[in-house]
Write a protein that binds this DNA or RNA. Structure first.
Lengths: 207, 207
DNA sequence: ATCCGCCGTGGACAAATTGTCCACGGCGGA
DNA sequence: TCCGCCGTGGACAATTTGTCCACGGCGGAT
């Protein structure tokens, strides 16, 4: 089957080149079956890191995303995935397309900046629903750490709180209780983590 | 002098057409001397509404902006202005270029949306510098009303506060004192306006 | 098994902020 | 001149924020 998918993958890769890579995964071994136009350095046989899909809401049958990802060098990607099943409904392959957004981001920035400092009337962007963004941020962090909420280590928590702090979350009214709820902690625990994170800049383990 | 400026104005208008208008104002009578490629419906002789310039920080000698403005139909503009002086330093004319940003905005939105719901890592967008956005919002409002800060009517103030409220500004910690400063009012005045604005949805003058 | 240290919990409290109220003074119109 | 409206500043109550600490659970070392 993977063979029959190959032309499709290559076609997509060519269409979007050089801004996208196409990866075919083997869900059984959780490894890369084939890759076209790699952006990341992965090659055939590398682990897939596909567990992530479990977390995501499929938008339709076996279709996931688009969802954001990042390359180690900081470039941002938009990704979609599709599960290919055999005649009996068993997953046979997972096809992922990762588009490098940086070129589009740059162009958008150029256009958006055209003769304009402009914030204008969309004042409605001040707060939006910061509570949702908070949850997202926490969820992302947890996912990145590959753990669950209560499986986080202390230093993980400090790190997360530091991130939220840097993001200005705590300038929001009533944020501490909300963060506490989002992290599944007590209010005081959050204050304690916050104190820690503000004490030591960004160390891992002091000797 | 205005005559000698005409070719310049027309050239600029043609270069940017159909996305920009060029207006030549007479600061003495505060009216429109000439206009090329009008976006607004102003014609020669109309009042200029130029007092606004006093409020803005010039970026260089007699050069203002770019600053955002809006057309009655909602299109957003980016504007720059320049003061032309005679041999003795008296203002002789004011040249304004207003670029219709809507096309650029649209293009930017398309690019920005490319394959992306993306919240990604820019968590740093939570608060940004809401204080600056606050000032901008206030300044925009004042400019739109064509008045100065202390020239606002009571209902204007209520309206502005309502806008800020809707924008979620007051969910920000310590926002009331800051808003008070930005509006040149006392803290209690802001609370009073806020109470009013929350009482009546959006009426002008109840019978 | 027991002890110890780490960590989070909850609650008590002090400090700060937020929201209300009101008397006073300026200002414009009848 | 008198009146009504409006903002000011300050007093105060209500809430929220931040700190502290004793208690209890849990895992590792003894």
């Amino acid at each position: 089957m993977a063979d029959r998918l190959a032309p499709v993958c290559e076609a997509i890769a060519r269409l979007l080149s050089p801004h996208a890579e196409v990866v075919l995964h083997d869900p059984a071994t959780d490894s890369v079956l084939a890759i076209w136009n790699p952006l990341s350095k992965r090659t055939v046989g590398d682990p897939s890191l596909l567990g992530e899909l479990d977390e995501l809401t499929p938008v339709g049958t076996d279709v996931y995303g688009p969802y954001p990802k990042s390359l180690p060098d900081g470039r941002r990607l938009s990704s979609v995935s599709a599960v290919i099943r055999d005649g009996e409904g068993r997953p046979e392959a997972v096809l992922c397309v990762n588009v490098d957004r940086s070129a589009f981001d740059a162009a958008a920035r150029i256009l958006a900046a055209f003769a304009a400092p402009a914030t204008a009337q969309p004042a409605a962007l001040f707060a939006g629903d910061w509570t949702e963004r908070l949850n997202e941020t926490v969820a992302d962090f947890v996912r990145d750490k590959g753990a669950t909420l209560d499986g986080l280590s202390k230093s993980d928590r400090v790190e997360l709180v530091a991130e939220l702090d840097a993001a200005g979350v705590f300038d929001q009214r009533r944020s501490v209780p909300t963060v506490a709820r989002a992290m599944g902690l007590s209010r005081s625990a959050v204050y304690q983590l916050l104190a820690l994170s503000r004490k030591e800049p960004a160390d891992a383990d002091p000797a």
